Simulated assay, not measured.
Amino acid sequence: MNTRQLLCHLGTALSATCLMSAMSLAHGQTNLPDPIKVPSGHKLVLESVGVGEITYECRDKANAPGQTEWFFVGPKATLNDRDGKMLGSYFGPPATWQAKDGSTITGTQLAVAPSSSGNLPYQLVKANPAQGKGAMTGVSYIQRVATRGGVAPGLACTAANKGQREVVNYQADYLFWAAN
């Protein structure tokens, strides 16, 4: 990824400070909350921009009779490179990242950290071994950062609309890491 692509993606002005901050986010982890930092001994092997939607359903709240809440049903997104070229897809459950070459990984969430208001939290996922050979082979961690949108709908979830599904748009950077 070149500097211009990165800055264009981030929608920021060209400046040394901006460039260092953006590069630090993607490669150095220094600007990320501690819970979602990738352990040392790993290198960034693939960056993608996930663009898609998340489905929520109004359901009974677990262990709270008579209460309802928006329940995360699952994501559906296209994974693109910084130029907008499709690299693969992200869907679930279970959370699955699939490269265009057919290789796939699933994973287990290790940590989340707050993002800005109205946006999905940052996330660190431990990847399971890849299925198939290709871009996902060797990936050990996935980070979700630079999130925009994706939170549960602002509509009321009540007994009257139980079962109703709502789809919200989101975007996030997915960073894929492998052992050095």
Rank of each mutant, 00 (worst) to 15 (best):
T104S: 11
F176H: 09
S115Y: 12
G102F: 03
A99Q: 10
G11R: 00
V125E: 05
G74A: 11
T147D: 15
A130S: 06
T147Y: 10
H9N: 01
I105Y: 07
E69T: 10
V167A: 00
D101L: 09
T106N: 11
V125R: 15
K76G: 09
A146T: 05
R82K: 03
S103N: 10
L79M: 12
W177H: 04
S117K: 12
T30P: 10
I36E: 08
I54Y: 10
K76L: 15
V38P: 03
R59P: 07
S21E: 07
N119S: 15
V139R: 13
R148Y: 02
G84T: 09
A16V: 15
T106R: 07
M20W: 14
C18M: 14
N31T: 15
Y170L: 04
S21V: 08
S116W: 06
F72A: 11
Q109I: 08
P129H: 04
T158E: 06
P75R: 09
L10Q: 08
G154M: 00
G149C: 00
N31P: 11
G150Q: 07
H27P: 03
S24H: 12
G163F: 03
V168P: 00
L155M: 05
G107P: 05
S40N: 08
Q5V: 00
T96M: 13
F176L: 12
S103D: 12
D101F: 06
G52H: 05
P94T: 10
A26P: 03
G88I: 05
V38N: 02
L79N: 10
G154E: 03
G132Q: 05
R165L: 04
R82M: 12
T137G: 12
L6K: 10
A99N: 08
D34M: 06
P33L: 04
L79I: 02
P94C: 07
V49A: 02
A113R: 10
G11L: 00
G107N: 01
A95I: 14
M86G: 00
N119D: 15
D81Y: 06
R144P: 11
V51R: 03
G138F: 07
L25N: 15
Q143E: 12
G138R: 04
A99W: 10
G11Q: 00
E69S: 11
R144H: 13
Y170Q: 00
N128R: 08
T55V: 08
V51Q: 06
Y56E: 07
A26L: 14
Q131L: 06
P93L: 01
G150T: 02
A127E: 09
V145R: 12
G66K: 04
L14I: 00
A156V: 02
V168T: 00
M86V: 01
D173I: 12
N63M: 14
R82D: 05
V125Q: 12
L44R: 14
P93D: 02
A16H: 03
N180T: 15
T104F: 07
T55E: 02
L6I: 09
T3N: 02
Q143H: 13
S24Y: 08
E166P: 01
